[in-house]
Design a protein around this nucleic acid. Structure first.
Lengths: 116, 116
DNA sequence: GTTAAATGGTTCGGAACCGAAACGAACCCG
DNA sequence: CGGGTTCGTTTCGGTTCCGAACCATTTAAC
C-alpha cells in the first residue's frame, strides 16, 4: 500500500492530472462520463443503464446520453441482454481499455513526480 | 515522497474520487473549470485570464466563462489590476479555499483506503 | 390472457458551453 | 496627440447537456 499522501500532495496530483487531461484533449469527457467509463472498466460486469444511474446518483437519461457519446467515440458499446431483453449490457472495447490505460499511466507518472 | 502507485491503484483512486465528486454534487464543475480552480489555488499569484488560457491551452472566452460560473458560485473572484487596468487578477475566496480543501481531503481518504 | 412492473430510450424547453470573430478599454511609443 | 497593441469581454451560430415527463418493449404476476 502506498504511504500516506498529504493534502497538499493530493491536490497537486489532482491539479497536474486534470491539467494534462485538459491539455492533451483526448476528446474531453464530463466528470459523469468519466465516472461511467471507469466504473465499467474497473468494476465487474454486468453493467446496466439503471445500475449505473443508481451507482452515480444521476437520472437515466444521463447514462443513456453518456453511452451514446462514448459509444460514438468507441470507448464502450451496448449489447442487448438476450436472457432479459429489457436490459442493455454495457461492454468494454479495446479502444476504451487503451484510453483507460493511458489515464492510469498519467496518474502514475504525476504521482511519481510529486514533490516530497 | 509517497511510494510508487501501481496503474491499477491509480485508476481505482481516480474512479473513487470522481465518483465521490459526481455523487456529492458540489455543483458539478467541468474539467476545465476544475483545472482553473486548482491552478488559482495551488500556483502562486498573480493569475490573469490570458495566463490561465495559455496554461490550460484553451481560448480566452473559456476562462472568462469559467470565472463567471465559479464567481457566481463564490469559488473565486475578479479584481482589476490597478497598476495596469487592462488586467484582471483572479483572487481566491474563503469559500473556494474550503472547497479545494474538501477535494484534498477526499483524495487523501480515497488514497488511504486503496487496496494494497 | 390481462394487468402491472421494470427497463431503456426519446422528447421537451431551458441552460451551459464551445471557438471564432468583433469589440471597447487601457496602455505604449514614437 | 494618434496609430498599433494588449487585454478581457461580448456576440454569434451551433452543439451538448440537463431533469422531468412520456413512450415502447419486455417480463412478471395473478
Amino acid at each position: 500500500m502506498p504511504t500516506e499522501l498529504r493534502p497538499s500532495q493530493a491536490l497537486q496530483l489532482w491539479h497536474d492530472v486534470t491539467l494534462d487531461l485538459v491539455r492533451d484533449e483526448e476528446p474531453d469527457l464530463t466528470s459523469r462520463q468519466l465516472s461511467v467509463l471507469l466504473t465499467v472498466y474497473l468494476e465487474p460486469p454486468p453493467h446496466t443503464v439503471r445500475g449505473l444511474a443508481v451507482k452515480l446518483g444521476v437520472t437515466k437519461p444521463v447514462i443513456t446520453r453518456a453511452l451514446d457519446t462514448m459509444g460514438r467515440l468507441g470507448l464502450l458499446k451496448r449489447r442487448r441482454d438476450e436472457s432479459d431483453r429489457r436490459n442493455v449490457l454495457v461492454q468494454r472495447t479495446l479502444e476504451g481499455a487503451l484510453a483507460v490505460g493511458r489515464l492510469g499511466d498519467v496518474v502514475v507518472a504525476r504521482h511519481r513526480d510529486l514533490r516530497p
